[in-house]
Nucleic acid binder design. Structure first.
Length: 839
RNA sequence: GGGCGAGUGGCGGAACGGCAGACGCGCCGGCCUUAGGAGCCGGUGUCGCAAGACGUGCGAGUUCGAAUCUCGCCUCGCCCACCA
């Protein structure tokens, strides 16, 4: 029974992501589509993105950061690998404690509440995380094993307690690692308060044992800036240590470090840091009052004042003299705060002629300046130090070494010093050990007790975990609430059983993140921090992604930890990851970092409600290179939505489209065969390009290519080709290639096209080079490098034929103006360049 | 001061040393609509009616050919900084 009414063509259903996105997420989760199984025989591939701090809400920057590796993980799964892509939470940290103080919410309540919310938001994002491996670092099951690892490091001497000058944040009332102090103004990385120096007894990790190894990036695919920042931070300097004997009787020789042993003949005085232990020994009685005054002043100064290069040099003579080991001259010993106690030996030989700081000091205090290195011309600078190097520089005024090239003199002089027992080659690093303890509550307790009789004692393994008590008082007294918790404080000595006091410092949260990637390999393991067998199977991480702001913090600590655990015999790898990629930062619309206080935070939830998850994902990946980031702007979101709408329409040709195809009703360009061929070519070139782009993190260009394929498909439909084989192949391929970026749309359309669930389990398509190849090509023709014409030729056109055609071109002829070409350069398949004689 | 990045249309950005501006946004024109903050089609680096000329921060260089390589400047971002 037919009716004459409503002959309107049935229109495709409107593209409405909210009608299907939720349904698919539930199904994927129920089917455990992204759960990685240890017994999966396929090749294992570990992809990891840095777990977030549970601050409360996922912001658009998290989406940006996590969608990239999610795309790569999804593609690798489709390429037949067993992909582990886990997620967890960096549960300990200061904000939780501040919330407790400010708002009376317990840190645990606050943290776990935030985790619940962020887990929900991450599900909305449809990232293909394997939640079965989730790790939350503030769970006792996690930090128990961290305490265990701490004890192993302690036993091996890699964790130790010692006095040291440390950075102290007066606002957070906590010590900071050097890496956590930012900028010239030396501000706390968390709260921005200027830090102070304090001498405190602290827990440290001996990361400096690994300084040299951490400099080695061989075989590591890390971004250049990260390698450079870590290298700078470690600050390896090669030079020599030289001993200067002192008067009287050389009771206290001074050892200095210098990178310029070649200039020792120019050392006309010495400078010790005010804190140097020999200061009090060497100071003569008549100078003692002045010296003590200066030392006390230096101690009072803030770090910022002291480190300022702007500031005029200060210092005092201590009355004592040293002997220059090469010239045997008697030279005065000074103290000055420009010499730092923590670097080198805390003492220098001052060579004012070849060091700007020493020059400034010598000028101010009228100390002798003697040039000992000069260019071959003999020309010396006036009124400044000679610090720049020339290839022809030689030593002058340097006894038996006079005339020697400076480059050779470093070795020669060091050797001479060594022969008389006054020096040797030495290497110094700027890197310090990592301050591991924090005077805060919400962190992993350090498993140590103090006995009056036996001192610091490790908590026995069978007593782990040392549980963080929850019933504590958060009154902001300035000391950790653990210090007033009698039940926690009271312990017994494992050696004598007598009364002991428990350590109240907790660990830096960067300890938590230094091994979480190992825990993911066996998250429920109860006999140790991780199952060695699983770790050997999964590690190292094939691809690690996260922010570059962690360059000298987490990204160095996790390398250190891996190496330390290797030396403890716990893992067999040298490096945690072979490949690191940093996403750029998404800034607020005002070009500032997104923060609640600035009110420029873009919440993803409302965008998702409006456009759907896929659109937000694709938009973020399209705005620019992933490693670049940039200020947030929703301009263009509509364009992405329109594109997915076009995919929606193209994948569901209407009856009318099919009728037109059957009737060959459309604007044909060439024959049906030619059009089908062109569409297949578009399909296969896209396959090849998109896969490469995903692996290279070029998601923006991958999307551009998918858009081009979509446009080709739409054009084919409008030309009446919607019914053909090529059309179906193009659409189905598009959906598979699109699946990593827009998982919901791809799945929904895959089903609507009658294919079996799931698009995410389809094999990744392989490009057929024969189909991708074109049989004609357009060659640009240049004259003297400037584009003048284009030739359309078949690919098999011989070179001499192309040359003939190029020269025959009327546009080319005009520029040749009758002259014969000097030569013709052909880059096969690329271009023709005709070179004309030069005037 | 040192190290590392980056400068391309109105905007986000493309471009193995080989057609500068892919893809998208925006804008302009048109179609379709009672309507359009929907959809579709076309145009859109600058100057020029056109032919054409000029164009990748500035200046040199290498090359048949440079956004791309080299050198020197300028600007911006990040990291380090009295580190001997």
């Amino acid at each position: 029974m037919t009716t004459e009414t409503t002959p309107r063509a049935p229109r495709a259903e409107r593209f409405d992501p909210s009608s299907f996105e939720g349904k698919w997420r539930e199904r994927w989760e129920a089917d455990e589509l992204y759960v990685s199984r240890d017994d999966d025989p396929r090749p294992k591939h570990y992809i990891l993105t840095m777990y977030p701090y549970p601050s409360g809400d996922l912001h658009i920057g998290h989406w940006f950061a996590m969608t990239g590796p999610d795309i790569v993980a999804r593609m690798h799964r489709m390429q037949g690998e067993s992909v582990m892509f886990p997620m967890g939470f960096d549960g300990f940290g200061l904000p939780a404690e501040n919330a407790a103080i400010d708002r009376g919410i317990h840190p645990a309540t606050w943290t776990y509440g935030n985790i619940d919310n962020m887990r929900r938001q991450m599900r909305l994002m449809a990232a293909s995380f394997d939640w079965s491996r989730e790790v939350v670092t503030c769970d006792p099951e996690y930090y128990r094993w961290q305490q265990w690892l701490f004890l192993k490091l302690y036993e091996a001497g890699l964790a130790y307690k010692a006095m040291g000058a440390v950075d102290w944040c007066p606002k957070d009332k906590v010590v900071l690692a050097r890496e956590q102090v930012e900028g010239a103004e030396r501000r706390c990385w968390r709260c921005g308060t200027q830090v102070e120096k304090r001498d405190l007894e602290q827990w440290w990790f001996r990361i400096t044992n690994y300084s040299d190894e951490l400099l080695n990036f061989e075989g590591l695919d890390y971004p250049e800036p990260i390698k450079s920042m870590q290298t700078n931070w470690i600050g390896r300097s090669e030079g020599a240590e030289i001993d200067f004997s002192t008067e009287p009787d050389d009771v206290a020789p001074i050892r200095v470090f210098t990178t310029r042993p070649d200039t020792v003949f120019g050392a006309t005085f010495m400078v010790l840091a005010p804190e140097h232990p020999l200061v009090s020994v060497l100071t003569t009685e008549d100078r003692r009052a002045d010296v003590e005054l200066y030392v006390a002043d230096a101690r009072r100064e803030t770090e910022i004042e002291r480190m300022s290069t702007e500031r005029e040099k200060t210092g005092v003579f201590i009355g004592a003299h040293a002997i220059n080991p090469m010239t045997q001259e008697r030279i005065p010993i000074w103290i000055a705060d420009y010499v730092l106690p923590g670097y080198g030996t805390g003492a220098i030989m001052a060579v004012p002629a070849h060091d700007e700081r020493d020059y400034e000091f010598a000028t101010k205090f009228e100390l002798p300046i003697r040039y000992v290195v000069a260019p071959a011309s003999g020309e010396l600078p006036e009124g400044r130090a000679l610090v720049e190097h020339t290839a022809d520089e030689v030593l002058i005024d340097s006894g038996e070494f006079t005339g020697m090239p400076a480059a050779d003199a470093i070795g020669a002089i060091t050797k001479a010093l060594e022969e008389r027992g006054q020096g040797q080659l030495a290497v110094t690093y700027r890197q310090r050990d990592w301050v591991a303890g924090r005077q805060r509550y919400w962190g992993c307790p350090i498993p140590i007790v103090y006995c009056d009789e036996h001192g610091a004692q490790p908590v026995p393994e069978d007593q782990l975990p040392v549980v963080l008590p929850l019933d504590v008082d958060f009154a902001p007294t300035g000391v950790s609430p653990l210090q007033s918790h009698a039940g926690f404080l009271t312990a017994s000595c494992p050696t004598c059983g007598g009364p002991a006091r428990r350590e109240t410092d907790t660990m830096d949260t960067f300890v938590d993140s230094s091994w979480y990637f190992l825990r993911y390999c066996s998250p429920a393991y109860e006999d140790g921090p991780f199952d060695r067998v699983k770790v050997d199977e999964w590690m190292p991480i094939h691809l690690y992604t996260g922010g570059s702001e962690h360059a000298v913090m987490h990204l160095m600590y996790f390398r250190f930890f891996t190496k330390a655990l290797r030396d403890l015999g716990l893992v067999s790898i040298d490096e945690p990851t072979l490949k690191l990629r940093n996403q750029g930062q998404i800034l607020g619309a005002d070009h500032n970092r997104m923060s609640k206080s600035r009110g420029n935070v873009q919440a993803p939830d409302e965008l998702v409600a409006r456009y759907g998850s896929d659109t937000v994902r694709a938009f973020l990946m399209f705005v620019g290179p992933w490693d670049q980031g940039g200020p947030w702007s929703a301009t263009g979101m509509e364009g992405i939505h329109r594109w997915l709408g076009r995919v929606w329409g193209a994948a569901q040709p209407t009856d009318r489209d099919l009728q037109r195809a059957a009737a060959n009703d459309g604007e044909m360009v060439g024959t049906v065969e030619e059009m089908e061929r062109a569409l297949r070519r578009a399909t296969h070139t896209t396959i090849a390009a998109v896969g490469e782009d995903y692996d290279g993190f070029h998601f923006n260009t991958a999307i551009a290519k998918l858009m081009e394929l979509t446009n080709a498909i739409v054009r084919a439909r409008e030309a009446g080709r919607a019914g053909g084989q090529a059309y179906a192949e193009a659409v189905d391929t598009l959906l598979v290639l699109l699946a990593p970026i827009a998982p919901h749309v791809a799945e929904e359309l895959w089903e609507r096209r009658g294919h079996p669930y799931s698009v995410h389990q389809q094999p990744w398509p392989v490009a057929d080079p024969a189909l991708a190849a074109s049989d004609t090509l357009e060659l640009p023709v240049q004259v003297d490098g400037k584009l003048r014409d284009r030739l359309v030729v078949t690919v098999d056109t011989p070179a001499d034929e192309i040359e003939r055609m190029a020269l025959a071109s009327e546009h080319v002829q005009r520029y040749l103006a009758g002259r014969p070409p000097l030569r013709v350069i052909q880059i096969p398949g690329r271009l023709v360049n005709i070179v004309t004689p030069r005037e």
